[in-house]
Amino acid sequence: MSTAELIQLRDSARQVLGEAGLAASESKTWPLVLELGWLLVAVPEELGGLGQGLAGACAFHEEFGRSLAAAPYLPAMLAIDAACAAGKADWVERFATRDFVTAPLADPALTLSDGKLGGTASAVPSADLAGHVLLCADDCVALVSLKQAGVEWRERPTWDATRRLFDLRLSGVELDPGLVLARGEAARALARRLAAQRDFALAADAVGGAAALLDSTVEYLRTRRQFGRPLALFQALKHRCADLKAQVAGAEALLAETLSRAGDDLASPAAERAGQAAKLQACAVYARVAEEALQLHGGIGMTAEHLCHLYLKRALLNEHLGRGGNRYDLDLAEALMAVP
């Protein structure tokens, strides 16, 4: 598949999600995801996918960010990538067309002892609709059935209305050897690979959301008239929008550059740094655009019927997803400081 074909596919996703409407529900968009084969974008061709890799996946994450669609596309893509990495061709087909497997969007706190899994995982999207969850613990990556004994889950309502997040509590959960994807060094590499992808996916979501929100904010300023002129005529507002535009363009360019810097070995330290840089910058820019957009909209932005708050809340949540401990900046600095 060529770049031009990917762009075509991306455009068709934009159109489909656009027709579904802004922040379209999970029940409306998830069947579209399965039916249109969007989960196969990054899957290698030899496993029946479109072979577009992480860059292809990120083109779709951008569209989900842009449209605020509620389908749990990101965790499903992580589970499918893990199945690909473990060479489980039959799982890939199942996960991409029928059975939803979820995964935490934040690092879990799990331990594995005597073959039993215990601890917690938070920010697990749509766990009530998933058969399994993909978990990384110590030196093991495995799928765990959500119906298994010792697995409890509860929904945690979030400010972000475009995602449904669950907390999982595991105690003495027996691992099914048939569901283990990797152990030992292979598991640590797979966990790094998944963490990098999650960073890139969140960055792409943020880039899409920031671009869409800035567009609609500028459109509002062009239409809304006060003091006998369009608000877009006021230089104070133009300059703020121009600054946001430069930041969004920077986050977009950085995402593309870091994706190519990361290359194919997503478990490498270079890919880890690249993903961290993309995630930190894109999410910071998204939060900034959302903060400014609400102010630029004035009173209407404070109303629940307006779109501003949906983006704002997704932007705020995005900043806190990913690697835990608010360490993105510290980790990037450490990598630089480590070079003598």
């Binding site: 360019a253 840089a277 993105y328």
Partner: peptide
């Protein structure tokens, strides 16, 4: 100093983004 490290860590992707923009 963690505060300075955070500032440096936030500057790094901004510098990368400026490079990526010029390149693009």
């Amino acid at each position: 100093d963690p505060a300075l490290r955070r500032e440096l860590g936030r500057l790094i992707p901004k510098v990368d983004a400026a490079c990526a923009l010029a390149d693009r």
